[in-house]
Every structure is written in C-alpha cells, then in structure tokens.
C-alpha cells in the first residue's frame, strides 16, 4: 500500500518535473493563453486552439471566464463559460450556449422566442511543442481534446431530424506563433456530428456519424496586446430540412488589461435552419488569472 503510493507519487513527480520547483500561478505572456472560443476551450472565437487557458505556466494553475454575445439578423447566440488550466498542460472547460430564435422561431413553427441551448464540457491535453518559446523550430504546439455536448430540447431536435441530443467532438489542434513574422496560425481537425455547433443536436437524417471538419485561423500581432485575424470553420451538413454552411469571422482580440481581453469580430455563420445569411457582430469579454 505505502509502496504503491510512493511509486505513484514518484511517477507523478516524474511526469511533472516542474513539481520539484516552487509552484506558482500566473506568469504567462500576454495573449498566449488564447481567448475563449464559443465552445469554451482556449482558442480564437470559433476555433479551438492548442493553447491552454489561463495565465499559468508549467509551474502553476490558471483559469479564465468568458461571456460571448453574437448578434445575428434573425437570431442571438450567447455563451458563457469557464476554463481551468493546469501546468500549461491540461485544460478543463465548461460553456453554456443559448440560441434565441426571436421572431424567426414563429416562422419555423417553434414559437416566437424559442431558445435552443447546450452544455459543452471540454478537456484538452497539450501533447508536444511550445507555440511561444520554440521559435527556432517549425514544430507547433499540438493538443488533443474532447468536447462533450449535452443539448436541450431533445424532442424538438429529434423532430427536425437529429439522431441524438448528446455527443462528443474529438479534435487535434496545432498552434504556432511565428514571432519573427508577428503571426499566429492554427489548424484544427475536429471529428464531429454536431448540427450548428450542437445546438440542433447530433447526426441527422442525411448523415449520422462523425466526419472530419477543419478549423483554420491566422492572425497578425499588431502590438503585444493586439491580434487581428481571420478564422474559418467547416461544419457537417447532416440535416435534410436545412442546409448547413461553413462559418468564418474576422476578429480583433485586445488584451486591454493583463487579466482581461475583449474580442470583437464580424462573423458569418451562413444559413441557419433555412433562415438565410446570418452575419453579424461577435463580442466576447474574457477575464483570466
């Protein structure tokens, strides 16, 4: 018993060599913990990146909280969530998303102001590389993650053709800061069967299972606390009743304080549930420690 505990603690110390040093929270360089994506994971606005949330380094713990509002012509999407980072290695996140159909709800036969919602519980593990310090190597920071979605209004989701109201996304993300060029680039492959991020359930009458989708982001550092860029995120098209489009955004992320940042974006989510051209303003406020 004692021996196995000793073995275990030795194994843990070996896995986290930082533990031999003083534990200490905070200390990450500005913006290198990313901002909060709509799914709650550290990333850009739409994409999950390989960066780990929070201000901590390999020696500590950190966390972030966000509130996001996306104003579209016919819908509103709000998201709020928290994320915790451990030793710049592991990230745990939670987000709640709410999708208000406003007037369009009546036209869709759901009733005016009908809202969809979902919980997203995420975990991310940094596998290799360092996006920030390894400037002499092309090797990006690579992380894998899982996001478990629990969507509300299951009967309605089934009625529109979704197969499930809960499902997991799996993704692998690679992020690199190209400091000499002042650039940040990210590529993510996500295995998902989510309809409209999961708000319309998972799988559909057209396709049931997961497919590989891509999230790409590229940003330019305009100052140490200011990043502007573009993001593109492809999505499956599982439901027969409405075509689902890819989404993109043009964003500016501004760390106006060591512990707070604001992301503003022009976002195009395409057609949603037969309602055309949902383009609008994305605003996200984040605090981090």
């Amino acid at each position: 018993m004692f021996k196995s505990a000793l073995l275990l603690s030795t194994a843990i110390v070996a896995a986290f060599p930082a533990m031999a040093h003083e534990r200490r929270d905070g200390g990450k360089l500005l913006l290198t913990g990313g901002v909060s994506s709509v799914d709650g994971a550290a990333g850009g606005g739409l994409a999950s990146w390989a960066l780990i949330a929070g201000d901590e380094t390999e020696d500590g713990r950190g966390g972030s909280a966000h509130a996001t509002y996306v104003a579209l012509p016919d819908f509103d999407l709000t998201s709020a969530g928290v994320a915790a980072g451990f030793s710049n290695r592991v990230e745990i996140s939670y987000a709640y998303q709410r999708f208000d159909t406003r007037k369009a709800g009546a036209a869709l036969g759901l009733g005016r102001g009908f809202t969809f919602g979902q919980h997203v519980i995420g975990a991310k593990l940094r596998l290799a590389g360092d996006a920030v310090w390894d400037q002499d190597r092309l090797m990006p920071q690579v992380a894998v993650g899982v996001q478990y979605h629990i969507a509300e209004k299951a009967p309605v989701l089934r009625a529109v053709g979704a197969r499930e109201s809960e499902s997991a996304d799996f993704y692998i993300a690679a992020t690199k800061i190209l400091l000499a060029q002042g650039m940040v680039v990210n590529g993510t492959v996500r295995f998902t069967n989510a309809n409209q991020f999961g708000l319309l359930g998972f799988g559909g009458d057209r396709h049931r299972g997961r497919s590989a989708q891509f999230e790409g982001s590229a940003g330019k550092l305009l100052a140490a606390n200011l990043l502007a860029g573009v993001e593109y995120r492809t999505k499956p098209d599982n439901l027969g009743f409405a075509q689902e489009d890819d989404s993109y955004d043009l964003f500016v992320a501004w760390a106006f304080h060591r512990h707070a940042s604001l992301t503003a974006a022009y976002v195009d989510l395409g057609d949603i549930a037969t309602v055309k051209r949902q383009r609008g303003l994305f605003l996200s406020l984040q605090g981090s420690l």
């Binding site: 310090w133 390894d134 400037q135 002499d136 400091l179 000499a180 002042g182 550092l221």
Partner: peptide, 17 residues
C-alpha cells in the same frame, strides 16, 4: 519598431531551453 522587436525576441525565445 514592433516588427524589429519581434525579430529579436524570436532569436532569444529558444534560449528558454
């Protein structure tokens, strides 16, 4: 200039190792 700052920092960053 910010661009020149970043070029020097990119040289120094790997010294972290």
């Amino acid at each position: 200039s910010f661009a020149a700052q970043n070029r020097l920092l990119a040289k120094l960053a790997p010294m972290r190792r």
